[in-house]
């Protein structure tokens, strides 16, 4: 890879880092699609850029919004002639695709909310809570 194309990819990735995950924009801690691991790959041939996008689930309805944002931001780079956003269908997004920083930030925000609202899970990893009234069984299938 030439230094020019390497530089272009760097700038493309910088722009991708500005694209926010739509769902996270409803929280106080919006996160970028890069930090969440939604960008599965970037390829550049001359000025033609292809971004592979892996949604958190295959029925994600916000792919068009993310694609539009990606195209708008990368489109501002003068050397870019075309942008294609491909949705990756043969992989499954899992939390371990997030950067460590993003994961920690998300966990911290989650814990803040849990504590602020005194939220406890219905299932603590071993038993159902008392509030889970109608389910009394513990039978393994």
């Amino acid at each position: 890879m030439s230094s020019d194309s390497s530089d272009l990819e760097l700038r493309v990735r910088e722009q991708l880092d500005e694209v926010l995950d739509p769902c996270s924009t409803f929280t106080e801690k919006p996160q970028s699609i890069v930090d969440l691991g939604l960008v599965d790959g970037v390829s550049i041939e001359s000025g033609d850029v292809t971004v592979d996008l892996l949604p958190t689930n295959q029925l994600c309805m916000y792919i068009p919004h993310m694609s539009e944002d990606i195209k708008n931001r990368i489109g501002d780079i003068p050397e870019v002639d075309s942008i294609t956003v491909e949705t990756v269908a043969d992989k499954v997004w899992t939390q371990d695709r997030m950067t460590d920083e993003a994961y920690d930030e998300r966990e911290a925000y989650f814990q803040e909310r849990v504590e602020a609202h005194e939220i406890t899970p219905a299932y603590d990893g071993a038993e159902w809570s008392d509030e889970t009234t109608s389910y009394t069984g513990n039978a393994e299938d």
């Binding site: 689930n57 295959q58 029925l59 499954v92 899970p121 219905a122 299932y123 389910y135």
Partner: peptide
């Protein structure tokens, strides 16, 4: 509705969704 589509098409995604709803909200 529609979320259940994941169980046939993308069971790992469905597992993530259902697990979160179950663990925090309970099954009722």
């Amino acid at each position: 509705e529609i979320t259940t589509f994941l169980v046939a098409e993308s069971p790992m995604n469905f597992a993530e969704v259902l697990a979160e709803l179950l663990v925090w909200g309970g099954p009722e």
